[in-house]
Write a protein that binds this DNA or RNA. Structure first.
Length: 297
DNA sequence: GGGCCCGCAGGG
DNA sequence: CCCTGCGGGCCC
């Protein structure tokens, strides 16, 4: 289950991983990432197992899993083929929320004194690879707290991390990027209907054929033909959704592209060829007509 | 407190 | 099915 677990408030504590698992907050009993490439990540645990992690409370630099020996040393490179890491990529590409759980073994000042604590929803703002402390390739994910997610409590026996001091012995400039809460983070609504359509088309744009491939995944957008809500009142059904690249999505939404009843794509009055279709993906002619009527000119 | 080893659920 | 993974308890 992606997002909040009903009945589980932010700050809920669990004495053990087994109890957190039974509550559904973080189902795996050992692994730090729960999820798959297809669904995205449900939840992650910060438990001090990866020394390259950084925890600033509302921003977390989370290291993917894999490549370790039993003693917590990186002995080989990490990969995005690893299901947990690929799940975090999907969460980024689809803008999905990820539950964050902090464990007492984390070195962070935000770690709970004992056991595990659910700390709310975060988004995967970015990700990338680098050489880790132990010299092997690691993948890291920047998680940013949702606006509704409160700053976690600081352990009383530890001081919060001080910002780097500006002193005369400091070199000019500042390599440390300013930590500012990004409230322009794009939050893409994801629905079962859109995911179904995107899966049928394997993220290939039904208009231009583009399939955006990035490390760890592919990207497309589910676009409603007839817009939802007033005054258009389009249905949230697969017959009213297209799998599109971002460019064609904008063109469809703003009327640069309309579709004829015979599924010919028309861009600014010029026929461009047939819409790509899939046998399981029946389209609503009513919705196509309604969209065309909206942009009659 | 550290090392060990027995775990199980989730995922391919 | 087999394998892995930011446990956890027990022994020393």
């Amino acid at each position: 289950m992606i997002g909040e677990i009903p009945g589980v408030p932010v700050g809920e504590e669990y004495a053990s991983r087994v109890l957190a698992s039974e509550a559904g907050v973080h189902r795996p009993r050992i692994a730090g990432i729960c999820g798959t490439q297809a669904t995205g990540a449900e939840s992650i645990v910060l438990s001090g197992g990866y020394k390259d992690d950084e925890d600033y409370g509302d921003v977390i630099i989370y290291t993917g899993h894999g490549g370790q020996d039993g003693a917590g040393n990186q002995v080989s490179d990490q990969s995005l083929d690893d299901s947990g890491n690929a799940a975090l990529v999907t969460s980024h590409l689809q803008g999905l929320p990820v539950r964050v759980i902090r464990g007492s073994k984390s070195q962070s000042v935000y770690a709970p004194r004992s056991g595990y604590r659910y700390d709310g929803l975060y988004r995967v703002a970015s990700y990338g690879s680098r050489s880790g402390i132990d010299g092997h390739l690691i993948w890291q994910f920047r998680l940013e707290a949702d606006l509704a997610t409160p700053m976690p409590t600081v352990r009383e026996d530890q001081l919060p991390i001080e910002a780097p001091q500006q002193g005369p012995e400091q070199p000019d400039g500042n390599d440390e990027p300013e930590r500012v809460r990004s409230n322009v983070q794009r939050i893409v609504r994801s629905s079962k209907v859109k995911n179904t359509v995107k899966l049928w088309h394997q993220d290939q744009c039904q208009i231009c054929g583009t399939r955006i491939e990035v490390p760890g995944g592919t990207y497309s957008e589910g676009a409603h033909i007839q817009a939802l809500g007033r005054p258009h009142n389009g249905p949230d059904q697969t017959g009213n959704v297209l799998c599109l690249c971002p460019n064609c999505h904008v063109k469809l939404d703003a009327g640069a592209i309309v579709i004829n009843d015979d599924l010919t794509v028309v861009e600014n009055g010029v026929p461009k060829g047939p819409l790509r279709t899939h046998p399981k993906h029946g389209l609503s002619i009513d919705c196509i007509r309604s969209h065309r009527e909206r942009w009659r000119r």
